[in-house]
Simulated assay, not measured.
Amino acid sequence: MTSCPTSAERAALKVAQAATMTGDASYDLVSAIVFALGSAQLLQSPETAAEQEQLRKDRDAFCVQRNGVFRTNERLHEALQEEQDARLRAENDVRTLTRERDGLRARVAELGDSAPSQVVPVVDDVPVPVVLTEMDGPAVVTSAALAAAEKLRRTLALPGGERP
């Protein structure tokens, strides 16, 4: 008997106490208790005990397997959360860059209205307005370009080429 009786032991004790109170003289006390326990279905066969032990082992194995699955699920959940966070950061970056691009386009349009510019093709064939001056050097402002600008000034007949 254990220090704290289990529910099965308490049930067996009640059956044994009840068996001692019956006055059946055909059996000794121990036999009467055993028969009473059997009638109350508190006794089990060795096969039933072995099956119960196997079921306990199976249950414990399933618990270990379940705990492993829980750990895997937690790991996968954390990885998914990190990927979702990275996706959200990327979407925020795209929105920020789009706003910056739109702002720069608006600024270029604003500057394009106020200053003479020349469209210079870049590598990806997107025209970018660039204001060329003589300070940019001979590589950018050639004598042919200066001659063409002077011819345009004369044609427009504007002093110094200023806009009206």
Rank of each mutant, 00 (worst) to 15 (best):
S39P: 00
P129I: 11
T155Y: 07
L88S: 09
V120Y: 08
L42W: 08
A148S: 07
T142I: 05
K57V: 11
P121K: 01
A86R: 15
Q65Y: 01
A144Q: 14
A79S: 11
L156N: 09
L88C: 05
P129G: 09
L152A: 15
A32G: 12
L156E: 03
F70K: 08
T96Y: 05
V15M: 07
G160Q: 08
R75Y: 13
P164L: 14
R66F: 12
G161C: 12
T133C: 11
V123N: 07
R95F: 07
P46D: 15
E83G: 06
R10D: 04
V34I: 14
A18D: 14
E9N: 03
T96Q: 07
L97Y: 11
P5W: 09
T96F: 04
A19Y: 07
L156Y: 08
R89E: 15
V108D: 04
L156G: 03
S26N: 08
S31Q: 13
V140K: 03
Q81Y: 01
E78A: 11
A19H: 05
K57P: 02
P129M: 09
A147C: 09
T142K: 01
T6Y: 03
C4R: 13
V15H: 05
L13P: 03
Q52C: 07
G112C: 12
E9K: 03
R87P: 04
R89S: 13
Q81F: 02
L42E: 08
D125K: 05
T2R: 15
V141K: 01
S7I: 01
A115N: 06
P127S: 05
A12W: 04
F35T: 05
D60P: 04
V122F: 09
L42H: 02
S143D: 02
A115H: 06
R87Y: 09
Q84I: 10
R163D: 08
V30P: 03
E51K: 14
L42G: 08
G68I: 04
E9R: 04
Q81G: 05
R99L: 08
E100K: 01
L97M: 11
E110G: 06
R71A: 15
S7P: 00
V130H: 06
S3T: 10
Q54N: 10
A40M: 10
D93V: 07
T155L: 08
E47K: 10
R153G: 00
R163C: 12
V30L: 14
S117A: 12
A36V: 04
V123T: 10
G103S: 02
T133W: 05
L146I: 11
A109V: 00
A90D: 01
F70H: 06
R163L: 14
V34S: 03
R59G: 09
M21K: 11
P127R: 03
E47N: 07
I33T: 13
L111D: 09
L80A: 13
V94Y: 13
L43F: 02
V120W: 06
C63A: 15
A50D: 01
L13D: 13
E74F: 06
L29S: 12
A61I: 02
A139E: 06
T20S: 11
A61K: 07
L104T: 02
Q84F: 08
